[in-house]
Amino acid sequence: MEVFLSSYGAAIVQMALAGVLALSLYLPLMAGQLSLASPGFYAVGGYTAALLSTTVFTGYANGSYPIPLIVVEMVIAGGVSALFALIIGIPSLRLRGIYLALATIAFIEILRVFALNQPWLGGAVGIYNIPQPFFSATRIEYLLLALPLLFGAMFFVARLERSRVGRAFIALREDELAASAMGVRPTYYKVLAFTLGAVLAGMAGALNAHILNTWNARQGTFDLSILILAYVLVGGSRTFLGPVIGGAFLVALPEIILREIAGAPGLNPVIATFLRDGRLILFGVLIAVSVFFFPYGLITPELFKRRRKKPEKVTVEAAKPTPNVRGGNL
């Protein structure tokens, strides 16, 4: 157990956070909006927590940091992200499909260059020595914060899917014109979905700033956008469980390849070296391949329907993404 935790502790916490980030992209997608802005809010949240914990709040005398303060920071970070989301979202959510995706890419790049050049955000070095509440090297204790965040987010999204608001989101995804004809206000619900996603990303960032101990402009980049999008699409974008499982799976995968498969005894050294140094190649190929073999993701709503009821005929059409999610209309 000791060995397991020392090699996987950090990865397990990151798996939980990946789930939260994936949900933050899933929320706008639920309303049919392909937004890649999550890393931007994640960076905003991280900077908020880093600034608060290094300048405003003070920890205990022994160098430890009180956990309630981290929770407070997460709440504030969520609020700040929501503010950003409103400012960015209200003008840009008029855009659709790939245009919205491009606008959100522009947002994260502008934010990155800005953070890189602001002395009060630490410039290229970033903010370091962010205080930690736990002293162990494995960082597994952070699960105390990461798991409630993940489960809270999952519970929230699961309830949302069955609420009036969630049904409005899904109506917008299926057909915006029809939804607005039925009295669903498109702009209101789109901005709401975007903002809720931003809050989740900001909270994940705030927590991760403490876990990583340092925060800089490399934390919320386009690379992360791609990764989060991959979490959602590999996991499945039709139910909230998909993104969470996709995130956990894709974070664990490179670690498992690195430590278990490449380190297995009796393995051809050439293959072992390839697995160790080239695991990101495999990662890229797996993403490309999984999209081909699991176009609706690993987890689809049909999986649950089959188990619960008598097997009814499940058509592929039902799971087929609608034109709006396709970035279609282009």
Partner: peptide
């Protein structure tokens, strides 16, 4: 959208 992701996967590779 899936094509976009698979092209990203190829780029990473």
């Amino acid at each position: 959208l899936l094509t976009l992701v698979s092209s990203l996967g190829v780029a990473v590779a």
